[in-house]
């Protein structure tokens, strides 16, 4: 098996590694780079515990080959907190007790952040369908969904505050790129 040399970027840092072609990105993260925050619950893309962003797109790292990430950007759970400052989602997960055993938590956080970056005003149904690929066996999902909705609420408040501030400073309001509202689909499309 011929090893592959890969140069990539993980959480903003340039990273180089060598891997066998049969190694998944998850294998590389965990076994070669010591980044064990992404978890393997199934290895078949059915549990979401290994969720990472690949070029801003939410994916299961167990279904990405290590060999194919050269030149791409990867974001993992390890890059979510900035220094000692937790991401608002991480803080809300703690406050809402949205984790019990915690094994699924990194995957949920990465997936939820990806949702809120696209849509900071999701409905409960949108949150539930977006996170349907992340299995949790402990919580029954209730507190996880509440934590995500509560974070979104705070994000909207913060956004409103900052835009009000800008307006009062009489600066031309920054053109806000409309986030694609793309999660409504799933709830609606289950007519069957």
């Amino acid at each position: 098996m011929s090893a592959v040399h890969v140069s990539t970027n993980i959480n903003g840092d340039d990273v180089e590694f060598v891997c066998r072609p049969d190694e998944s990105l998850l294998d590389v993260l965990r076994d070669r780079l010591g980044m064990t925050g992404s978890k393997e619950g199934c290895g078949t893309g059915d549990c979401g515990a290994c969720s990472v962003e690949l070029d801003g797109r939410l994916v299961c790292s167990c279904l990405v080959m290590g060999a194919e990430v050269g030149g791409h950007k990867i974001e993992t759970i390890e890059g979510m907190a900035q220094g000692d400052k937790l991401h608002p989602l991480q803080q809300k997960f703690l406050e809402h007790a949205a984790l019990q055993c915690g094994i699924c938590t990194p995957g949920f956080l990465v997936a939820a952040r990806n949702l809120l970056e696209r849509n900071n005003d999701p409905t409960e149904t949108e949150v539930r369908y977006w996170l349907a690929g992340n299995l949790c066996r402990c919580t029954g999902y209730d507190k996880i969904v509440r934590a995500v909705l509560d974070t979104a609420k705070d994000m909207r408040k913060a956004a409103a505050k900052s835009s009000a501030k800008k307006a009062s400073a009489k600066k031309p309001a920054a053109k806000k790129k409309a986030a694609p509202k793309k999660t409504a689909k799933k709830g609606a499309r289950h007519a069957a």
Partner: peptide, 17 residues
């Protein structure tokens, strides 16, 4: 908040594997 919470939301907590 639970005492092991920050480790679990940052991926630092060490599980079996």
């Amino acid at each position: 908040n639970r005492p092991d919470g920050v480790d679990k939301v940052t991926g630092r907590a060490r599980f079996g594997a």
